[in-house]
Every structure is written in structure tokens, then in C-alpha cells.
Amino acid sequence: MTILLEQEIRDALDTVKDPEIDAVSILDLGMFEAMEWTETAVGYDVRITLLPTFLGCPALEIIQKNTESALLQVPRVNTVKVVFLFDPPWTSDRITEQGIAGLKSFGIAPPRVVDGKWEIDCPYCGSTFVSIENLFGPTACRSILYCKSCKNPFEAMKPVSTLM
């Protein structure tokens, strides 16, 4: 029963997409940290812990609401509480393989840190011959770049790492 519920919750979390990048879910981004529940006569009271990517990210509130409504669709789930914690800190190495593929399909270079330095490959042609046009992009977590090989502008997700 509990294994089934856990799987159902995970499936529901996988339907919650980043409001600004609908190719990746909060699971793909590694924002999910923990789930707990207590059983009552009327069903389950579920508590989900998420890790914010950037502390001032205005999308957090939307993610919180979307997570709540997705989980309320799960059978027997009665109440949902979503909390954000900054400890442990979210770091970009929490993004899954599937998340990396999703970002690329959206034209966003996934964050990559090699030897404490930010490495950026063009999501279209894979070239590393790129220039940073603006460190700050349309959202807190993204930068604007230009590929000098295939001449495409693109965005990159900023690495967030304790190594930098």
C-alpha cells in the first residue's frame, strides 16, 4: 500500500513542470527532497519538501500551487502541504539525465561545472565556441549566450555549485 502511494506521488510530481520550461518536471530538476504522510480516517495528509533553485525565484509560488493540486488528484490523498527548504541547498548536479535532455530540447544549455569552472556547450550544435551576452537572462536561473559556430542565440542554465 505505502509503496503504491509513494509511486503515485512520484508520478504526480512528474506532472508538475517548471512553469518557465515545460519540458522538465520538478523531479527532473532535482527540486524534490522528501515526502511524508500520515493516515487518517478520511485518507492521507501528505507533506512534500522541495528545494528552491534560486531563493528569489518568483516561480516558486506557482510550483507550490501546482504541486498541491497535482497531489490532490492522487486517490485517497486528503490534504497536501508543500514546504521549501534551503538545507540541503539545491545544486545543479541534482538535475537528472532526463532533465538535461529536456533542457536541451528546449534550447537551454544544461549547467556543467568542470574543475570549478562553468563549461557551456551550444544546445544546438554542441560547440563550446560561445560567448556570454548577458549573465542574467529572463529568469533568475538562466543566462543569454551566442554560439559563434552555428550563429544561434541560446540560453544556458547557470550552474549552482558549492565548488564555485
Partner: peptide, 17 residues
């Protein structure tokens, strides 16, 4: 201390800018 670890990662970009 935990919050400082998180803020530090964002601060990197502010300082560079």
C-alpha cells in the same frame, strides 16, 4: 550557516557582474 551556503552560490554571479 546553511542559508549562507545557499546565498553564496547566487552571489557568485552578482559579484562577477
Amino acid at each position: 550557516a546553511a542559508l549562507a551556503v545557499k546565498i553564496n552560490m547566487e552571489l557568485y554571479y552578482h559579484l562577477l557582474h
